[in-house]
Simulated scan of single mutants.
Amino acid sequence: MKNAVILVVDDDPKIRTLLRRCFEGAGSTVREAGDKRTALAILAADPVDLVTLDLDLGHDDGLDVARAMRKTSKVPIIMVTAKDDVIDRVVGLEIGADDYITKPFHLREVLARIKSVLRRTGDMAPLSQPSPQSQCWQFDNMTAVPAEMALRDRDGVLLDLTSGEFKLLEVFLKRPKRVLSREQLMDLTGGHCYAPLDRTIDNQVARLRKKIERNPASPRLISTIRGIGYSFTCEVQSCDGQSPSKSADKALAKSD
C-alpha cells in the first residue's frame, strides 16, 4: 500500500488518528473526514485509491455515504464499524463495499485487508510485472478488460460493475464450464472473512446476472448448480483467440 492515497471516514477523531498513523507508517498518504459532506467533497476533489468507512457516523449513516460514493466512483471501500450485524454487512457489500472489518480490530488485520483489496483492484500490481493492457476476454459478444476493470456490453456500452462484481466475473471467465463451489468462489474473490453459509456470493451472483444476462430471470451465462455453487456455461476466449490461462487451474487447486 506504499504510495496509496487512503480516505479515512470516521466521526471519532481518535480512530482517525490511529488509522492515519498506521497507514502513513506503511507509506500511504491519508485524507480524513468525520462526516458525509466532508468525505464526498474530498473524494470529488482528490484522487483516492481506497476508503475506510465507518457505518456509524453520528448524524450520518455510513451506508448512505457508501451509496453516494458509488454514484460517482468505483473507489474500493472497506467498512470499518462496531456493528456486527449480518444484515448490515450484506447491505454494505450489496451497495458495493469491497470488505468489512468489525471493531475492535487489530491494525495488522486492517493493513492486510487493505493490501488484499488494492491487489484485487489492480492498484498493488508489482512494478516488475508487465502491464496487462492488451489482455481482454470475450464472451456472448461482450468484452471484459481486467487491466481497466471494464466490461462492454453487446452494443459496446460500458457497464457499471463494482470492483467486487468484476472480480467475480473475472473468476468465472478464467474457469468457464467448471463447477465452482461457494467456498471456492469466496476464496478466489478474496472473501476469506465470509462464513460458509453466508449468502454474500449468492447476492453477488444475482447482481452480476442482472448486468450481463439477457434475461436475469432465466440465466444462460451463470448456471446454478444445486447444492454446490455455480458454473459459467458460456464460451470464453481472450481477444487473441486463446483459451483461458492454465494459471487459473493452479489458483483453483489452491482453493480446494
Rank of each mutant, 00 (worst) to 15 (best):
V236W: 00
D85P: 07
R67N: 13
P47F: 12
V30D: 04
Q237Y: 12
D249T: 05
F23Y: 05
D35P: 03
V110G: 06
T233Q: 08
E235C: 01
V30S: 12
F232K: 01
L197N: 06
D88F: 05
S255I: 04
D187E: 11
R199K: 10
K36N: 08
R199Q: 08
K74R: 15
M69I: 15
S218W: 06
T233W: 01
R21G: 12
K167M: 10
T52A: 00
S181K: 05
D64Q: 15
R108M: 06
S134Y: 11
E32D: 09
L118I: 07
S163K: 14
L180S: 04
P76I: 12
L118Y: 06
C239H: 10
G164A: 15
L55P: 11
S243H: 06
E213W: 05
E24Y: 03
Q242D: 13
E170I: 05
Q138C: 09
T52L: 00
K2F: 07
H192M: 03
L40G: 08
S163Y: 14
S73A: 15
F105K: 06
T121M: 00
P132K: 14
F139L: 05
A125Q: 14
A147T: 13
G156Y: 13
L19M: 12
G27D: 02
L50H: 00
D84V: 07
R67G: 09
K177D: 11
T121Q: 00
D60P: 02
L159D: 00
D56Q: 14
P130Q: 13
G92Y: 01
L188F: 14
S128I: 12
L19I: 13
K103S: 08
K211G: 04
S163F: 13
C239W: 03
D49T: 10
